[in-house]
């Protein structure tokens, strides 16, 4: 299919001899918001580290637009990496740089824009995430939620084709979380970006998710893929329905 963007085939993730997840197979289409979900410690963030090339899989491959990411040469890989934007759990802003320098660094390194142009782009990206006027602040001077938003702005710096977000709304107050979700949807709608989100915040999952994969910590593989709302309502696997309805079905609740 033409609009297949990212394809994960038979992926096995392991730390040494310890297999974290095996036989992951799913496809992320262009322009969709794809959710990686599952209980704590199941390997959601690790899967993201594989997708962005920070960790090599024990087996299997990942394809971007049909090209293998794992067997790509170093140069090809660097080019592919430049099409990703990544926001890390804590924002991971470079603490010795101001917000403007953080967002501007990728542009300084990889574009031929003038200083003036870069300043203008940086201030635009910061405004998108609601941080206009914070250009000269250092990461230590802003709140955790703002750091995350600045992280999104930095991830957007190079106009990526794929935006990866690791637990974007974790630790945010409800309004900031909602705002971030709206921003994600808006980015997808107006720029047609493919957005991959690692999260277990149900509200976010249902609000923004078009498609998802559910990682099961017990069986160490994917338990289901599909639209999260449909999974909640009609997935044959009770464990998933229970997860997506916050334990309303009973499993995991203490005995009366």
């Amino acid at each position: 299919m033409e609009n297949e963007h990212i394809e994960v085939r038979d992926l096995t993730m392991a730390y040494g001899d310890f297999v974290l997840m095996r036989d992951l197979n799913f496809t992320i289409r262009k322009g969709e918001v794809f959710i990686i979900m599952g209980g704590s410690g199941c390997g959601k963030s690790t899967l993201m580290r594989h997708l962005i090339g920070l960790k090599d899989p024990a087996a299997g491959d990942i394809y971007y637009n049909g090209e293998s990411f794992i067997s790509a040469s170093a140069d090809q890989r660097e080019l592919m990496l430049r099409r990703f934007g990544v926001m890390y759990q804590s924002g991971a802003l470079w603490s010795s740089l101001t917000l403007a320098e953080n967002v501007g660094l990728p542009l300084v390194q990889f574009s031929s824009f003038s200083k003036r142009q870069i300043r203008s782009i940086v201030s635009y990206k910061l405004s998108i995430v609601g941080l206009a006027g914070f250009e000269e602040f250092y990461p230590a001077e802003i709140s955790g939620g703002m750091a995350k938003r600045a992280g999104v702005a930095r991830a957007l710096a190079l106009d990526p084709e794929v935006l990866y977000l690791d637990e974007p709304s974790a630790g945010l107050d409800p309004l900031s979380a909602r705002r971030l979700d709206d921003t994600i949807l808006e980015l997808r709608n107006s720029l047609g970006m493919t957005i991959v989100v690692v999260t277990h915040e149900l509200e976010s999952i249902f609000q923004i998710g078009d498609n998802s994969v559910f990682l099961d910590v017990d069986t160490r593989t994917q338990a289901a893929t599909g639209n999260p709302r449909e999974l909640r309502d009609s997935c044959p696997d009770e464990k998933i329905r229970n997860f997506l309805s916050r334990g309303e079905l009973g499993a995991g609740k203490p005995p009366e």
Partner: peptide
């Protein structure tokens, strides 16, 4: 501490 804060990861994923 940059490593702890994933700042090194952030560089790598930019291809720096």
């Amino acid at each position: 501490s940059m490593n702890v804060n994933q700042e090194v990861d952030a560089l790598e994923t930019l291809g720096i």
